[in-house]
Nucleic acid binder design. Structure first.
Length: 439
DNA sequence: TATCCACAGGAAATCAGGGTGT
DNA sequence: ACACCCTGATTTCCTGTGGATA
């Protein structure tokens, strides 16, 4: 994995490991069946939603444009899967002009320019639009031409997944408006938009010009699955993914129950089952038991934290390092955003090529960390002593230390062993005493 | 009751780094 | 070489704020 555990792993023998691995019992028959991208032949408990979307999109079979459409629902309620399922079915029943489906995940393809370029590049694999450099209106015109020439008299569905993220950014409303007006500028081809959103309230931020066009049809709401429904989904997928008799009694129920607690997230349920299977596989067990699921649950939470921290920009990692140090060297100390700023400044001075940031920027980083659930930050007024955020680390200190140690620049500068100068002053001690009284 | 602290957080501007066509 | 484009990160500028204190 990393070279940080070198000492413990000295005796690791990779050849033996692979040989043993192959000798172990077969747990998976088809692992992909548990992946979020897998679309099964049947989607249990989504009949109502399938029927509605099928009704709205059916006119594409006769070559007519379908009205634009919005799908709402929390993560793991089957929105994307349902839309993909419909696209497959529609293609099966189409004679002649099969509609095009272009998927855009607005979390990945996140700017107006890139959305236009992505659509263009999906249709035209030969001559691609560069990732940056051209004016937007040029791309728009090129796209119009391409749609008329390549797609001609067919229908093109543009699926905007996680559309709420697009709206939050500047220019999001404009690009949506442009996309809703594509048909007015096209001679032959016709396009329909399907927006998929995790948030219900995102429609409030929508430009009224966009709302009227995107809200032609009543939005389709995907309700969370309950534990029984999740169990049905798991049984179906487990039947594909595992050979018979691998799963012990109660495993499905446990996965379903755990995921039902998290707003009925089917993705989480499937992830649990897959992870449990992988743990069983690694331990050379012949079947998957409830203890594997419990272990999987713990691993998933930890993995999430580790992955998140490692994927953050260095400045953000330094912010959490600052919080870590404040906690490490003074357990009683109340941490405020000002403290974090001071320590962050001290740390950034120790890493070559890293700029000291402003308070404003640190404030944003603190909010991001809080949003990710790594810390909690509560704005509190200390009266005469000002208004600030009181910050607490919400994850295990030893886990933070281990992860931060994996970041080369932090490890090299030995940041985790620096006692912040801030904590060595009397100023902070006095402030801390006043704050404690007030709280 | 006015004051004042230490920020919160919105909006717009700026900068650097990727690119374009001419 | 040059003028221009797009993006993401950050800075600058700004107004707002809850409640202990004088």
């Amino acid at each position: 994995m990393t070279n940080s555990n070198k000492d413990e792993d000295q005796s690791f023998n990779i050849d033996k490991f692979y040989k043993d691995y192959l000798k172990g019992p077969i747990i998976f028959k088809k692992r992909e069946a548990l992946e979020p991208s897998f679309i099964p032949n049947e989607l249990p408990h989504r009949d109502y939603e399938i029927e509605k979307i099928a009704a709205i999109t059916a006119c594409a079979l006769k070559g007519d444009v379908a009205p634009n459409l919005l799908c709402y629902g929390m993560t793991g309620t089957g929105k994307t899967a349902t839309v993909r399922y419909i696209s497959q079915k529609l293609a099966q029943h189409c004679k002649g002009n099969t509609p095009w489906w272009i998927y855009i995940n607005c979390n990945v393809v996140s700017t107006p320019y890139r959305i236009l370029a992505h659509i263009y590049n999906t249709i035209n694999q030969k001559e691609k639009i560069p990732p940056t450099g051209l004016p937007k209106d040029i791309i728009f015109k090129k796209l119009l031409g391409l749609l008329d020439i390549r797609i001609k008299h067919s229908i093109c569905f543009l699926v905007l997944d996680e559309i709420d993220i697009l709206i939050e950014k500047k220019g999001g409303n404009e690009i949506l408006y442009d996309l809703t007006r594509l048909n007015e500028n096209l001679d032959y081809c016709r396009t329909s938009l399907i927006g998929i959103s995790n948030k219900l309230k995102f429609i409030d931020y929508l430009d009224s010009r966009v709302t009227s066009s995107l809200g032609e049809e009543e939005p389709i709401v995907f309700h969370p699955y309950n534990a029984n429904q999740l169990a049905d989904i798991l049984k179906q997928r487990a039947g594909i993914a595992f050979p018979e008799g691998i799963i012990e009694d109660g495993v499905i129920k446990l996965c379903a129950g755990l995921a039902a607690k998290e707003h009925g997230d089917a993705r989480k349920a499937l992830q649990l089952l897959r992870k449990a299977g992988e743990i069983a596989e690694r331990r050379h067990n012949k079947s998957i038991s409830e203890s594997h699921v419990q272990r999987a649950q713990k691993d998933i939470d930890k993995d999430h934290v580790v992955e998140y921290i490692l994927s953050m920009p260095l400045q953000s990692q330094l912010t959490i390092t600052a919080i870590f140090l404040l906690r490490k060297y003074n357990k009683q100390h109340i941490i405020t955003s000002g403290d974090i700023y001071d320590v962050h400044s001290e740390l950034s001075n120790r890493i070559p090529g890293i700029k000291q940031l402003t308070k404003r920027r640190i404030s944003d980083y603190i909010n991001e960390l809080a949003l990710a659930g790594l810390i909690s930050a509560i704005t509190t007024s200390m009266g005469h002593y000002g208004r600030t955020k009181i910050i607490n680390l919400d994850i295990d200190m030893s886990l933070v230390e281990r992860v931060l140690n994996q970041i080369p620049k932090i490890k090299m500068a030995n940041l985790l062993n620096i006692k912040p100068t801030l904590l060595q002053t009397d100023k902070v001690r006095l402030k801390n005493n006043v704050f404690k009284k007030l709280l």
